[in-house]
Write a protein that binds this DNA or RNA. Structure first.
Lengths: 147, 147
DNA sequence: TGACAGTGTTTGCCTAGGCAATTAATATCC
DNA sequence: GGATATTAATTGCCTAGGCAAACACTGTCA
């Protein structure tokens, strides 16, 4: 298999990286716009999502999944707590860790975020067959696997 | 064409957005690692690239292409100037604008960045046929077009 | 030509993430 | 059991981007 790009003909703005970057920007902007009424930031709704579906329940887990700085996470959680979205609960099992729980308020946010995401993705995937989406996913996963 | 995702079965971490996010992270990290010896940040090498291949020559153009805040751009250019990578040249044509030019130093950076990008992309695309890369590009472009 | 809108750049202020050091609690290993 | 390493969370400090206001200059249009 010959290499895809070579130095002579390389055009940065036409490379996969640029396309991926533009697609990501389109997604982020669309979601932000959709979630604007909830007054919640990009980093924040991802956390609500992860707590809401049980993928994480402590700051450390969130940091690991999101590859996010622990210090920044503490402050992000502070903000969500101040908003009344989540609460910190110390547990007996491990007294270092703080279990994070969505409040009733926060729990109401979860389905709204899911709905927004589904809507945005479906919109950005207009005209795609399921097979094409599957293929896109697969190609991206192969890139990540090569890292 | 039926919608791709539905609320019940939606798994955020398996959606296209997540895959795109992970691919982007893999690319950024690989490039940063490759360019670490140059002591230049993510935002900075993109600017050098755009100036180097003539895609932009003023701060305003850079902002437009990168969808980047003008204030932040001023300061980013300050840093690159202090590093001796570029210089600002006032021109008679439009006395508001400042033409940006790579210094001899900056010009030497350009091919090294291109080389790093080509290398990283080719590595992340190991095992891809040209057709597959083309398909990936196309699928991403279609998403962006739907935005 | 002169008022006015628009453009290019800069600055100040605010927010937020990264890094390093700290503290508290737990795990490990002898 | 006790020294040591590791882990979870927090804090302070630094850097950098977003927004809004300010300023200089250019373009437009009556």
């Amino acid at each position: 298999m010959q290499p895809i790009y070579d130095i002579e003909s390389f055009r940065p703005s036409q490379a996969v990286g640029a396309h991926i970057g533009r697609a990501r920007r389109a997604i982020v902007e669309a979601i932000n716009q959709e979630l604007a009424p909830l007054d919640i930031s990009h980093a924040q709704w991802i956390v609500v999502l992860l707590l809401g579906d049980g993928a994480a329940s402590t700051a450390a887990e969130l940091c690991k999944i999101l590859i996010y700085d622990p210090g920044a996470m503490t402050r992000l959680l502070d903000r969500l707590q101040k908003k009344g979205v989540l609460k910190r609960v110390r547990t007996k099992a491990d007294r270092r860790a703080v279990r994070l729980e969505l409040t009733a308020e926060g729990a109401k946010l979860y389905p709204r975020i899911v709905e927004a995401l589904v809507q945005v993705y479906n919109r950005l995937l207009r005209g795609f067959s399921r097979a094409e989406v599957q293929q896109l996913d697969d190609l991206l996963k192969r890139m990540v696997a090569n890292a």
